[in-house]
């Protein structure tokens, strides 16, 4: 039986991890490669690196970082953030990333998902969906540009559209829950889970191990991603997995 995956997410800017990481024991707290190793040792099943570099130089540094991470890590990792063309995907995947994650660019030009899947295979293409509940229509709407811009897409339509275009996985972030630490967004995740046949990664809202138990026990996701609870050492991947095991959730 497939295990449920725990995926820490690291925000990287100009080749450094940002977002107040508190791994005091590390020589260099902002080094993505060092942090990746720590998470690997804790039993992370995969990692996501989100490039939030604003400059061209920062982008180039990202490719170097990917190369270094790939040389160190024996678990799969995904790179996302600002990937807008087949060329961007090529440079990241050739540097050794296993998957790329597309977000705003996929909404802007959905054919990018098709092209990426045809060229590299669906398993390389993750589509990240940022969604928020829309009172007026009574369901979830897709946003882009880090949640700043609403789109015409409702989450069910968009999820099906990208699956049809060859996306291999969906990374579904709840904007309503992001940073709230009140648990994953069951409504959003169930909505997506019901309409697609590809793996769904839950994101947004993780505050403690029980939140992971909840999302997995109800099969609302195949994997779950979190950033701050791991960074701030509120819990570790290891202890989340321990709690999952105790609750009968199959993990590695």
């Amino acid at each position: 039986m497939l295990t449920k995956r725990i995926i820490p997410c690291l925000d990287v800017k100009e080749g450094r991890v940002v977002k107040g990481i508190q791994f005091l024991s590390l020589r260099d707290a902002g080094d993505p490669v060092e942090l990746a190793k720590v998470y690997d040792e804790q039993g992370a099943d995969e990692l996501v690196f989100l490039d939030i570099s604003a400059t061209h130089e920062g982008r180039k540094t990202m490719v170097e970082m990917v190369r270094e991470v790939a040389a160190t890590l024996a678990i799969p990792f995904t790179v996302g953030g600002g990937i807008g063309s087949l060329e961007d995907m090529k440079s990241i995947l050739r540097a050794g990333a296993d998957k790329v994650s597309l977000n705003s660019a996929a909404v802007r030009s959905p054919e990018l998902v098709t092209e990426g899947a045809n060229y590299f295979g669906s398993q390389c293409i993750v589509v990240a969906i940022d969604a928020k509940y829309d009172e007026e229509v009574g369901t979830y709407r897709v946003y882009t540009h880090g949640g700043r811009r609403p789109t015409e897409w409702l989450v069910t339509d968009w999820a099906q559209e990208v699956e049809r275009r060859g996306a291999g996985e969906l990374l579904v972030t709840s904007m309503d829950r992001d940073g709230e630490k009140t648990g994953f967004d069951s409504g959003l995740l169930e909505t997506v889970q019901q309409v697609v046949g590809i793996p769904v990664i839950a994101s947004g809202g993780a505050g403690n191990a029980d939140h992971f138990v909840d999302v997995f026990q109800h099969n609302r996701a195949d994997a779950a991603l979190a950033a701050s609870i791991f960074h701030y050492k509120e819990t570790s991947v290891e202890s989340v997995k321990q709690v999952l095991k105790e609750n009968g959730v199959h993990v590695r």
Partner: peptide, 29 residues
């Protein structure tokens, strides 16, 4: 779901194979 994507337990059928040497229990991707 298809693809079969993620970590799954390796059930050994011929543990004496050279490839499984020293592998007691494990998951693979």
């Amino acid at each position: 779901k298809v693809p079969h994507m993620g970590w799954n337990h390796l059930d050994q059928r011929h543990p004496s194979s050279v490839l499984l040497n020293g592998i007691e229990d494990g998951y693979v991707y």
